[in-house]
């Protein structure tokens, strides 16, 4: 298999005195799905633009598939598929026409370009809308067409800049399935920026969080979540008295315990493994909870820890702008 790595070393992008990207380093391995998270203005898009050859770095070095993004830009374009946050589609063209042109620019002959276009339209469920101008597509349809355009030449590396923004949950799940499948079956390296933490959590094997132009955390989502704190077991009873009694019974089993009306929250490492012991202890004491749930730290908690702000703020802001 060809080299499908992304290597970023001490990348810097300055606009005057402002460093949009400040000494950023990370590596994405061949065949990996890598999530790149950060609030607005953190440097995500600038990094993507440098890696996709739209911008030049001020300093540092980056390669995509082994090709230097500065000196071998054309080779990078040949192996990289890009779906940018701003969807650039000609509203007067039809999807089949756009895909056919894109395929021809990448070296397909006309007949095979049309075949490839039809295949991709089926893939993104737009094959019933080939005669409709793109300007009359919904946001979700445009996003799916944009993904199809990025896949025309079967890239080794796929850059997805917020690929599901504006999509309904069903379309979002479709994209997730397709991203996973492309990665699993074709071994495409996927570099994903997203404003949805659950998306990064769901898809990415490793993530990096960028804030004010610098990487503030990187690793597997589970590692990052485990690093910031403990899981919790939430046990709910039918009344507050039973909850208080259960809290006394369980107090010596956990690192920290919190009672909130009818619910007892037990904080401990490896909570999942401790669930049977908690249930046994309660049953031994003749206590029957109404429900028992396991809560794990989220990437939002990680984000809060490393940036000092909740990630949802960004999502809210974007939705207000939209």
């Amino acid at each position: 298999m060809s080299n499908r790595d992304i290597v970023v070393e001490n990348l810097v992008k300055r606009y005057g005195d402002f460093a949009a990207v400040n000494d950023v380093s990370f590596q994405v391995k061949s065949g990996e799905i890598f999530g790149f998270l950060g609030p607005n203005g953190a440097g995500k898009s600038t990094t993507v633009q440098i890696l996709t050859t739209l911008r030049l770095p001020t300093g540092g070095h980056a390669t995509v598939g082994g090709y230097d993004v500065v000196s071998q830009a054309t080779r990078v374009r040949n192996i990289a598929g890009v779906a940018l946050q701003e969807i650039g589609l000609d509203p007067l063209m039809k999807s089949l026409e756009l895909l056919t042109i894109q395929a021809q620019l990448f070296g397909f002959n006309r007949k095979d370009a049309r075949a490839r276009a039809h295949e991709l339209l089926r893939l993104v469920k737009l094959d019933d809308f080939t005669e409709r101008p793109v300007g009359k597509y919904s946001g979700g349809m445009r996003r799916r067409l944009d993904l199809a355009l990025a896949l025309v030449h079967q890239p080794d590396v796929l850059f997805l800049d917020e690929p599901t923004t504006g999509l309904d949950p069903a379309s979002r799940r479709d994209i997730w399935l397709e991203v996973r499948r492309l990665n699993r079956e074709l071994g495409i390296t996927i570099f994903l920026t997203t404003q949805y933490l659950e998306e990064a959590d769901e898809l990415a094997e490793r993530i990096a969080i960028i804030d004010r132009g610098q990487i503030v955390a990187a690793g597997a989502p589970e590692e990052l979540k485990a690093a910031i704190g403990t899981e919790s077991i939430n046990v709910t009873f039918d009344n507050t008295e039973n909850a208080a009694s259960a809290a006394q019974e369980l107090d010596n089993m956990v690192e920290r315990i919190q009672t909130d009306k009818k619910t007892v929250r037990l904080y401990l490492n490896h909570a999942a493994a401790a669930v049977p012991a908690v249930v046994n202890r309660l049953q031994g004491a003749g206590m029957n909870p109404v429900s028992l749930t396991l809560t794990q730290p989220t990437l939002d908690d990680v984000f809060l820890q490393v940036t000092g702000q909740r990630f949802e703020n960004e999502t809210d802001a974007k939705e207000k702008i939209a």
Partner: peptide, 12 residues
């Protein structure tokens, strides 16, 4: 409409 940038991402 951004299509020009889209073309810049191809080897055209």
């Amino acid at each position: 409409n951004g299509y020009f940038d889209k073309l810049l991402l191809t080897p055209v």
